[in-house]
Amino acid sequence: MSESTEKKMVRLRSSDGEVFEVEESVAKVAKTLQDMLEEDCADAVIPITCVRAPILTKVIDYCKDQVMISSSSSTTNNPNERTEQERKAWGQKFMEGVDSSTLCELLVASNFLNIEGLLNLGVDKMVSMIQGKYPQEIRDMFNVVNDFTPEEEEEIRNQNAWAFERDPYYKKRSSSK
């Protein structure tokens, strides 16, 4: 990390009133905040109206990490630099244990704050939560209302044989690179 000249701090207020003080560089990971800060229209406290404190905490964690890995990336031997694989593993770890409602809030937050990397992590997480699940599991996870009539459901069940057999013939090429 660079020598500690005095770091400019920014204050963010979550929708439920909690105030977070972060370094400006951390806040600037969010494109929306970067724009506001550069136009200097953000003194005092920036209200993040649609993001609750626990979600904002997670978002700030993500931004801090981004600052950490990018801060010394100009030097050749950056110990924090990650390979593609490490980045993937880190992303998975970061999203580990995030439940479906938290995930939706995180997606909304990263969309609003315009943090592309976090949005992508969230989308990937959503895909991994949905794929290979039974329809009822998906409905339960995301509160999607089943609006089919019993007759329609029966018909769908008969038609979509594929949905109900999970990967019987699944074969992964093991030797490929």
Binding site: V123, D124, V127, I130, Q131, G132, K133, Y134, P135, I138, R139, V144, V145, N146, D147, F148, E153, I156, R157, Q159, N160, A161, W162, A163, F164, D167
Partner: peptide, 16 residues
């Protein structure tokens, strides 16, 4: 982004 083989499952979730 959900793989094709899960699509028939998705179609069974709701009308929309």
């Amino acid at each position: 982004r959900v793989p094709y083989r899960s699509h028939s499952g998705l179609k069974s979730v709701c009308r929309r």
